[in-house]
C-alpha cells in the first residue's frame, strides 16, 4: 500500500537529491588527474546515496583551463587523432596545437574519456562547464555553492613575489661581487 509522504519528508527528499554546483580552478593542474576527479563528481560517486540507477551527479564549473599543466613532454608528444573518413583523411594534432585552437579542449577530452563508455556519458558531460579564464556568466556564478579541492599546489612564480619579500628572503651565503653566475 502506497501512502503519500508528508510535506516535510517530501522537502527532505528534494534536498537529498538536489544537485550542487562545484567550482574547480584548473590553474597549474594536471588535466588527466583532474578529469578523474571531475568525472567522479559528474557521476555523483562522491555522495553516500550514489546508486548507478539514480541520477545524482553534480555540476562542475571549471575555470582557468588555459593554465593547465601537462606533465613531462605531453604538450609535444600527446597526439589527438582524427579521421575524416575519406582516403588519406587521418590527422594527428598535438596537445599544444589543440590548446592553441581551443583552450578548453584538452580538459574536455580528458573528462570525456574519464566519464567511461556508458550511455550516461553525454548527460554527464552536459553538467560540465569549462571556461578558459576566471570570467563566468553571472547566472552560473549564482548556482555555485562549493569548491572542488585542487589536486596539487599552485607554484608561485618569481615575479609574483614583491621586491621586499625577495630582498628579505634568507640567504645561506652571498655571492662575491666579482663572481660570474652565467
Amino acid at each position: 500500500m502506497n501512502r503519500p509522504i508528508s510535506t516535510y519528508k517530501r522537502v527532505q527528499q528534494w534536498a537529498v537529491f538536489g544537485r550542487l554546483w562545484f567550482l574547480f580552478d584548473a590553474k597549474w593542474q594536471n588535466p588527466f588527474d583532474s578529469a578523474e576527479k571531475i568525472a567522479k563528481y559528474l557521476a555523483g560517486k562522491h555522495k553516500p546515496i550514489y546508486h548507478p540507477l539514480s541520477d545524482v551527479g553534480d555540476h562542475v564549473v571549471v575555470i582557468n583551463t588555459k593554465d593547465i599543466a601537462l606533465p613531462n613532454k605531453e604538450w609535444r608528444y600527446r597526439m589527438y587523432y582524427h579521421h575524416t573518413g575519406f582516403a588519406g583523411g587521418s590527422s594527428w594534432t598535438s596537445a599544444w596545437e589543440l590548446h592553441n585552437k581551443d583552450q578548453t579542449k584538452v580538459l574536455w577530452k580528458a573528462v570525456y574519456k574519464a566519464c567511461g563508455g556508458s550511455l550516461l556519458r553525454h548527460n554527464m558531460m552536459e553538467r560540465l562547464h569549462l571556461f578558459p579564464d576566471d570570467k563566468i556568466p553571472q547566472e552560473l556564478m549564482e548556482n555555485i555553492s562549493d569548491h572542488m579541492k585542487q589536486l596539487r599546489p599552485v607554484p608561485k612564480a618569481l615575479h609574483e613575489y614583491t621586491e621586499e619579500e625577495i630582498k628579505n628572503f634568507p640567504k645561506v651565503f652571498e655571492w662575491p661581487e666579482d663572481y660570474v653566475l652565467n
Binding site: F24, D25, K149, L151, R152, P153, V154
Partner: peptide, 17 residues
C-alpha cells in the same frame, strides 16, 4: 561560512599538503 562567502575562494580551493 560557505553560505556567506563569495566564490572563487582561494582557501577552500587550494591544495593543502
Amino acid at each position: 561560512y560557505l553560505n556567506v562567502t563569495t566564490f572563487p575562494e582561494k582557501e577552500r580551493s587550494e591544495y593543502q599538503p
